[in-house]
Write a protein that binds this DNA or RNA. Structure first.
Lengths: 211, 211
DNA sequence: TATAAGTAACTGACCAGTCAGTTACTTATT
DNA sequence: AATAAGTAACTGACTGGTCAGTTACTTATA
């Protein structure tokens, strides 16, 4: 340790972001309950006390993580879904290129896993995640399916269930990666999965071409 | 409290099963880490000390839960998959009748959720669950898909990915029920989901009828 | 030199696992 | 049939360790 170098710096402006970034990593690794404030502090290179200068509680930190790290990704998806006029086939092609990229982000898997694991014990976390992330995404996709049905491209049926069917395999493969791959299970190739799944789903969902 | 009634009964034979049943409920409600041994003891109507007469550690209790409460269900599925000669269409019809029933069992959702949430912190739990439950089920289904491909019923493609595609929406809807329904999200109807999903998947997977 | 950013020791609540003692039940003896 | 001696199932208070949140103090900076 150089004798002239100070023991710490005063960096009021940068601290919150750094703490949130560290918290994202630790939450993703350990889950909410098992994540220790001391670990978050160490990763952010501050003391635990410093965290409490910027956040009132552990749950507060989580809320900041959702807002800063996750919401931007969802926004990307929503604009894609909302702005696309059709045909549905083409929307799904774009979607199938974007979705594996989103799914591949390490923070996604960790946070999703965390939400599922802790929802019962921390309902507030589940509510935030549902209202801000999951419901907008699923609703957007459902609306797109309904529009395609109205245009006669997609077969009749519950649009929300179709939307679930489109997204579910991606989601499960992310959970698989987080849960079972570390214990030796064979991973799924996200891109291959997306390609085969969306092709199969399109054959199942689209109306046969007229004529 | 009637004066003549004893403070406890000696019931060596029944205790382990009762403790495991209680543990299943508490684990499903709270997750592994947040489940308190005192809660399990109270639900099983014994003292905490009594649990340690029958199980060495908390993880030991979990292993017993998997063996006693979950494995029988999986066995049912495996025999269905292994014993069926084809056509694939028909196997999936039976599967789609059985799967929602399995998915509807409350212990399933709770335990699945727990595994996902705690895998990183308790890899041993994830390994047990993978080796005993998930891998047998997925492998069985994959084998059935491969057989159907060999008979020319199912289109070419990665059989394991097809298997994942079949199961994923059920799994996600179970997680949805456990995670978001308690916070006010709209639930999925398991039977309607199974019906629509398997019909769609069959259109996507099967070879067009020859001729 | 005033003050706000930051530290680190501390508190209090929580909980898995332990164990000394208690009680229900069994068996030998009369 | 009555009961004393013995066994093991069971209890519940306790221990040692962990961790969110607090506080008394230190240090960087205007």
């Amino acid at each position: 340790m150089p004798p002239g170098s100070p023991k710490f710096r005063r960096r009021k402006a940068e601290r919150p972001d750094e703490i949130v970034a560290a918290a994202l990593e630790i939450f993703a690794e350990k889950g909410f309950a098992a994540a220790r404030l001391d670990d978050i502090a160490a990763r952010a290179q501050v003391s635990k006390g410093a965290i409490y200068l910027y956040f009132a509680t552990k749950e507060d930190i989580f809320r900041a993580v959702v807002e800063q790290a996750v919401l931007p990704n969802v926004g990307m998806l929503r604009t894609l879904l909302a702005s696309h006029p059709g045909p549905f086939d083409d929307l799904v092609r774009r979607f199938s290129a974007l979705a594996p990229q989103l799914a591949a982000r390490p923070e996604m898997g960790g946070v999703i896993k965390m939400i599922i694991g802790e929802a019962r014990n921390f309902p507030e976390l589940a509510r935030v995640w549902h209202d801000q992330v999951v419901d907008p995404a699923l609703s957007g996709l459902t609306t797109a399916v309904e529009a395609a049905q109205a245009r006669g491209e997609v077969r009749p049926g519950d649009a929300r269930l179709y939307a679930l069917g489109l997204v579910a395999p991606l989601l499960v493969s992310v959970l698989w990666r987080e849960t079972f791959t570390p214990v030796g299970a064979e991973p799924f190739d996200l891109d291959a999965l997306a390609r085969q799944h969306f092709a199969t789903a399109m054959r199942g969902m689209l109306e046969p071409a007229p004529g």
